[in-house]
Amino acid sequence: MQFLSYLINGISLGSVYALIALGYTMVYGIAKMLNFAHGDVIMIGSYVIFFAFGSFGLNPILSIVLSMVVCTILGVTLERVAYRPLREAPSLAVLITAIGVSYLLQQVAQLLWTSSPKSFQSVVGLAPISLFNGELTISGETIVTIVACVVIMVGLIWFVNHTPAGHAMLAVSEDRGAAQLMGVNVNATISLTFAIGSALAAVAGALLCSSYPTLQPTTGAMPGIKAFVAAVFGGIGSIPGAFLGGILLGIIENLSKAYISTQLSDAIVFLVLIIVLLVKPTGLLGKKVNVKV
């Protein structure tokens, strides 16, 4: 029973990683860049909810929607201002810029809200449920997190495969030039990708801070890195890969915390990543890169 509880909590944590990993993987697939500031967008989104819901008592759903709007604007603006001018630049320059943006967001948050941790009030109103005569208790946060992640994943896969905008994303991710020849506006498609990734980051932030209620300017950094690992683990560029990678990462992390060592759990996570990449360099669901003739 204990094991089941660890497992479910692992899936819940993994769901958060999966939502964040989606942002990494979609941006990588379509804009061919690693947006290392993605984790910090989550942190900003969480502060929005902290103030809207925690301080001003706004309805929790509205608070999340507000946070999604703020994060979307933030994500699209960052792309427009910091990344778009570097579209033709070497990828190393873009990577360094992204790291710079990440620190910028953390510093701005520190200036605005200080570095002292805030206690985040959970946005989930659902009561915990008790199973097997009270032997297993699952918190409302855990249930909502898992359900939200599954719903978003299904919705996103449907969107990408069944709408013109989704097809445009697939086309740009495969061949930017050919997509342009079809009439796809690449800049608009990349903006849309950042918008979706950032909105999902807001949801991830709300769920993350509801389960782990300490909020400070560095809150997004570690989950951001782990979600990046999850994206690579699942096969970067692949949406189902981000889902699978995120969930597995959450489970591995939680089980190693429970059965091996709390301190070593992160090391174990990275060790698993290294092993997976040695065996399958493209990640679990990653596609082989097409070699052009």
Partner: peptide, 15 residues
């Protein structure tokens, strides 16, 4: 677009 089907490729042409 190698990941898209023939039909989806043609659909992209009509984008």
């Amino acid at each position: 677009f190698s990941g898209l089907t023939v039909q989806q490729n043609l659909q992209m042409g009509a984008y």
